[in-house]
Amino acid sequence: MIQEFLQNTLPLDSSVTLKRSEIDSASNIAAVRSEAFEIISNSGETVGFVKAWEDAPSFRGYVHFDSDGNVIDWKVFQDRLQS
């Protein structure tokens, strides 16, 4: 679910793909689901990283890093219920 969310919201062009990475589960909060991804170019080079989290389907976000670990973008999304 997190990968689908990133593919729909992270501004990536078609020359890169997301590859799931291992994440240290000891550092996770039990209620929050998180995943880490490498951004891989068509030539196989790692060109960035993304760490994404989801507290509920309506509250999630990501941090996008370049290949040196510098933050490029940080977004939080919260769906608002309409009455």
Rank of each mutant, 00 (worst) to 15 (best):
M1V: 11
R60L: 04
P57A: 08
I72Y: 01
E22T: 15
M1Q: 11
S14M: 07
F5W: 10
W53L: 02
I39G: 06
V76H: 00
G44E: 13
P57V: 11
N70A: 15
T46S: 10
F59Q: 08
P57M: 12
K75N: 09
A36S: 06
D73A: 09
A56G: 14
Q3E: 15
V63R: 01
T9D: 08
F77D: 03
Q78W: 04
H64S: 03
F59S: 12
L18N: 07
K75S: 07
N8C: 00
I40M: 13
E35W: 08
S58W: 15
S41V: 01
S21N: 15
I39V: 14
V47C: 05
N8P: 00
M1F: 08
F59L: 13
R20C: 05
T46R: 09
L81M: 05
G61L: 02
S34R: 11
L10E: 01
Q3D: 12
A26H: 09
L10S: 00
A52I: 09
I23L: 14
V63E: 01
E22K: 15
S27I: 07
S41R: 12
V50A: 03
S34L: 04
D24Y: 08
Q78M: 11
G61R: 03
P57G: 08
F77V: 03
N42L: 06
E4S: 13
S15D: 14
N28M: 13
G44I: 02
V63M: 01
V63N: 01
D73N: 12
L12N: 10
D24L: 09
T9S: 09
S21T: 12
S41L: 02
L81W: 01
A26K: 13
F5K: 09
A56Y: 08
V50E: 05
A52Y: 06
E45L: 04
R60E: 05
I72S: 00
D73S: 10
E35K: 11
N70K: 11
F5I: 03
